[in-house]
Write a protein that binds this DNA or RNA. Structure first.
Length: 793
DNA sequence: CTTCTCCGTTTTTTT
DNA sequence: AACGGAGAAG
């Protein structure tokens, strides 16, 4: 370990790192070395003699956890770093819950429902309760569904984040009153049914992971005592993004010891839609009377202009902890504001300015980022970049594990581990088609709900839970059950993830199905299934290499079920690319050059945020995050019209542009940022010819109450550079043995560049062993490995 | 029971 | 534009 690690910190950072005498809050402005403080603090704790496996470091995203681990690794080595408890709230507590599952009425093999599972379960419950019918309401809500699944889900989610059980919910006069007013008086019953079905299915959703952790610690004093003592120091990153459930877990674990270090920046709180609450930071002082507060205010990242501009923007927010972020870097260029006619022109402008800047600055492509408010905005930008042959990488969008065919396969995986998993069962009971249709499923569901058991139990014990099915149907169900049982037993007998996964794909004939005809979609589905298998294979191989015995399908699923899109670091690291992502996804990152596009009213700030000042402030913080990603150059663009929801709508410049002190901006001479617009009625600020009906629809929509946080469904065709796009299909293909030799240099779709060191043709399927430039050596099955041949060594 | 087709709704951000 | 849901035909 580097002895002089403390010298690499400035005075404020060093003070924060060295203070280990009690609870500590570090308010860290953007770019002030927040992660640096956390990583060095961990190193410092190790120095002081804290054992690595008793340090708990919680982050918000997988990406942040990974980055922190890597940075600690560099300082103390992988052997020590791998012993730290470091990860997202969700993954760490999932692990703890699995270890203690029986105490809260679960088994350790519980499934984790993702948002689409949750939504599908909500829909099922609403249908069962007869609440999915149209409501005959008058006025603007006429014809709208009373119980909108996504809104229900988000209400349930809020309840759990506030640690309110269904039983407590129904006892709360306030909540019932609100529901009555919102025309959904039976929400409590939906919540209860949802909870019950999850329990029966042995499933937890994302919120449950936090909720049940609280239950576990609340109802089992000995468990609480154990973890309190076990974790001798707790560190939390991005505390401004924690919700109440997370806050309570943290305080439960550290209230007595006071060995807590929390880092956050209230100005970067951008997840309140998910229950994050800045109050958690402020309330720390109440919980810990001895709380010491440290401030990091010097920004090392950006030029003065960028920091000053962002500062002048965030000053317009009323709610914030007073602090002054300053930069002592060079003044730098002004922030460029560009007005465009349309989203197409915007994309063109950005692409051309980017290419030009790339030439003049000499920065490589990965020093450029284009940030947007919504994923949908990426389309046009992609096109413009492609036209200019600028290589880019999109983050977000549909994750690999969310693709239909992959989800289907995963559903079988899940059933093998937990056949009670209703959502997985419903997904694949008739896929591939085996003549078990809606009617049968409805009858099974009815019986399952009446018996308060899982669908699997109903299928297993038809006599005990009669569903009123005819003999033919029963026979079909029996065959399906046989298939699942076979997988379950294979897992119990200790099959590793690859054996079991391969068997599932073969026995269900999923891959075969797609082989039948070779439409482009089918081809891509085949590829994705093969990619999944090679993912499993890679997982098993890694575990073998690491000398770990944890290579069961359950171990694989534990990694996968909480891995989200950002995590898939696919694409080769060797090639430099421009980054395209949402502002949310960009948090914690930095680039020399940042383009923020679509800086318009109703988009940024979002149309959903228009009706409350608090939401506008969150959007403003989001804008602040966007701008402070930039080190040297920042450009903001807006368009006069934009293709949205299938039609072209008019747009006005964002109020945020006017919030920024104009001293730091470079505007086109004729650009007044929409300041001439009458401010009284901003939304109807258009001539009828310009605006058309979309506009009036929009102003109508504002009357309706906002419908909560919708769960995201992303379109295919984004992300995963290796699939979907014709360009990449050509680049990475399958190869035969005759095409490769030892010494052949290949470019793998996932692992990057590497040289073949061995070819094994002994088995039924030829394998190649490749030493990759990222130091990994992997053995790949030739029939699955997607790569291009670069040359020979 | 399956498949096809039309219709209506949708769009914020993510663990 | 793109998806899911509903309804009709096979």
């Amino acid at each position: 370990m580097d002895e002089n690690y403390l010298d690499e910190l400035n005075e404020q950072q060093r003070a924060a790192v060295e203070y280990c005498d009690g609870p500590q809050l570090v308010i860290a402005g953007a770019g002030s070395g927040k992660t640096r403080v956390l990583t060095y603090k961990i190193v410092h704790l190790l120095r002081l003699g804290y054992e690595p496996w008793r340090i708990l470091a919680l982050t918000f995203t997988n990406k942040a956890a990974k980055e922190m681990r890597e940075r600690v690794e560099q300082l103390v080595g992988g052997a020590v770093a791998s012993k730290l408890w470091m990860g997202t709230f969700h993954s760490i507590f999932a692990r703890i819950l699995r270890a203690n599952a029986e105490l809260i009425g679960f088994k350790s093999n519980f499934t984790i429902y993702d948002s689409s599972d949750s939504l599908s379960l909500i829909k099922m419950i609403l249908a069962d309760m007869g609440l999915d019918k149209l409501a005959f309401l008058s006025g603007p809500r006429k014809g709208q569904k009373k119980y909108k699944p996504s809104a229900i889900l988000s209400a349930i989610s809020s309840a759990k984040n506030a640690l309110i059980s269904p039983e407590e919910y129904v006892r709360s006069k306030d909540l019932l009153e609100i529901d009555a007013r919102d025309n959904r008086p039976e929400l409590y019953a939906v919540y209860r049914a949802y909870r019950d079905r999850c329990v029966v299915a042995g499933a937890m959703d994302f919120d449950d992971l936090l909720y049940y952790t609280n239950v576990l610690l609340r109802d089992n004093p000995d468990v609480l005592r154990h973890y309190r003592e076990f974790f001798s120091y707790v560190l939390v990153d991005e505390y401004q993004d924690t919700n109440f459930a997370q806050h309570v877990i943290v305080t439960q674990l550290t209230r007595e010891s006071g060995r807590l270090c929390v880092v956050g920046d209230d100005a970067q709180s951008i997840y309140s839609f998910r229950g994050a609450n800045i109050r958690n930071i402020l309330d720390l002082r109440k919980t810990y009377s001895a709380l010491s507060i440290f401030k990091l205010e010097r920004n090392y990242r950006s030029t003065r202009n960028i920091i000053n501009a962002a500062g002048s923007l965030i000053d317009k927010n009323s709610e914030q902890i007073p602090k002054t972020v300053y930069s002592e870097n060079e003044t730098g260029a002004l922030i460029e504001v560009v007005k465009c006619y349309s989203d197409f022109e915007e994309a063109y402008q950005v692409a051309s300015r980017l290419s030009q800047l790339k030439m003049t600055s000499g920065d490589s492509a990965d020093e450029f980022a284009i940030l947007y408010r919504t994923n949908a905005q990426s389309r046009v930008l992609e096109e413009a970049l492609r036209k200019r042959n600028v290589p880019y990488r999109i983050y977000g969008g549909l994750s690999f594990y969310q693709r239909k065919e992959v989800k289907d396969a995963i559903a079988y995986f899940r059933l093998a581990l937990n056949p009670d998993d209703d959502e997985a069962l419903r997904r694949v009971i008739n896929f591939p088609a085996r003549g078990i249709g809606e009617t049968t499923l409805a009858k099974l569901t009815r019986a399952a709900i009446d018996g308060n058991v899982s669908l699997w139990t109903v299928i297993q014990e038809p006599d005990r839970y009669p569903a009123g099915l005819n003999a033919g149907t029963l026979r079909k169900l029996d065959r399906f059950a046989g298939l699942i049982t076979e997988f379950v037993q294979a897992d119990r007998k200790g099959a590793d993830a690859l054996e079991l996964a391969t068997r599932i794909i073969e026995r269900t004939e999923m891959l075969k199905m797609y082989l039948h005809d070779s439409t482009p979609e089918n081809l891509s589905k085949q590829e994705n299934l093969q990619e999944l298998i090679s993912g499993v294979k890679g997982f098993v191989e890694t575990r073998v290499e690491e000398g770990s015995d944890s290579m069961s399908l359950a171990d694989f699923m534990a990694e996968v079920s909480l891995a989200t899109d950002q995590d898939s670091d696919s694409g080769d690291a060797s090639e430099e690319r421009v980054t395209l992502m949402t502002v949310h996804a960009a948090k914690g990152l930095e680039f020399n050059n940042v383009f923020v596009v679509g800086v318009e009213e109703e988009l940024f700030p979002s149309a959903m945020a228009q009706d409350s000042p608090a939401q506008i402030e969150e959007e403003r913080r989001l804008m602040y995050v966007a701008m402070t990603r930039a080190k040297k150059f920042c450009m903001l663009t807006y368009a006069g019209s934009r293709f949205r929801n299938g039609q072209t709508v008019c747009c006005r410049p964002s109020r945020f542009l006017r919030d920024i002190d104009q001293r730091y901006l470079r505007l086109a001479t004729n650009d007044n940022l929409g300041d001439d617009a009458p401010k009284v009625r901003p939304t109807v600020n258009y001539t009828a010819s310009m605006a058309g009906s979309a506009r009036s629809l929009n102003s109508l929509r504002k009357v309706q109450p906002s419908s909560g946080a919708p769960q995201s469904f992303r379109r295919p065709g984004q992300m995963q550079p290796s699939a979907g796009k014709p360009a990449s299909d050509v680049r990475y293909a399958l190869h035969s043995v005759s095409e490769v030799a030892e010494g052949t240099v290949i470019e793998h779709a996932k692992f990057g560049r590497g040289a073949i060191v061995n070819i094994d043709t002994a088995g039924p399927d030829p394998r190649i062993t490749v030493k990759f430039e990222n130091t990994d050596t992997r053995t790949l099955m030739l029939k699955f490995a997607k790569f291009s041949i670069v040359g020979t060594e």
